[in-house]
């Protein structure tokens, strides 16, 4: 299974190893791990709760993986995204990509993260000393996704 949406933590080493297990054609594995930080916009963050849209979340991540596989010749792609309550230092997301060479592995890994940031239906609720508040999306995430040369996410009302 290339996509998992789960509450549980994951084993980064095991996931990276699995991407090349028994595949001697793999010459490069690139990976990314996203973590909860203890600051956000200058405020202390005690914890965050990740909400998602069950069903659409899995489908959108599978679409993103499919798009990466169309753009690059890849031997394996793995995406894990957690939801629920997480604390600073906790892992949120894992993206791993296996290919013949580093070029496509690095590029596809970054592409998957950039697309995930603007298309996968997750929302962060941060707990700070001032109370809980929803994190606003950043324009820089849209521009990061847009540089891959396709139209950005549709924006009803624009």
């Amino acid at each position: 299974m290339s996509v998992s949406v789960q509450q549980a933590d994951f084993d980064v080493g095991a996931e990276i190893a699995a991407l090349s297990q028994g595949r001697l054609e793999v010459g490069a594995v690139a990976s990314f791990v996203g973590l909860v930080r203890d600051v956000s916009g200058g405020a202390e963050v005690a914890a965050m709760t990740l909400e998602h849209y069950p069903g659409m979340t899995e489908r959108s991540l599978e679409d993103i993986v499919g798009e990466a596989r169309r753009r690059w010749q890849l031997d394996g792609v793995r995406v894990i995204h957690r939801y629920g309550r997480l604390e600073p230092g906790d892992r949120i997301v894992f993206v791993g990509v296996a290919g013949a060479h580093r070029g496509e592995a690095f590029a596809a890994c970054e592409f998957v993260m950039d697309y995930l940031k603007t298309r996968a239906p997750f929302w962060k609720l941060e707990e700070t000393p001032d109370g809980a508040h929803w994190v606003d999306a950043r324009d820089s995430d849209d521009s990061a996704a847009a540089r891959w040369g396709t139209e950005s996410e549709p924006r009803p009302g624009d």
Partner: peptide, 22 residues
């Protein structure tokens, strides 16, 4: 979805703020 996309019987339509995962 885009604003111009059709809505028909049995559809599931969702509205939400811009996503903030990752």
């Amino acid at each position: 979805a885009n604003p111009a996309d059709p809505v028909g019987p049995g559809d599931e339509i969702a509205f939400f703020p811009p996503v903030t995962g990752g």
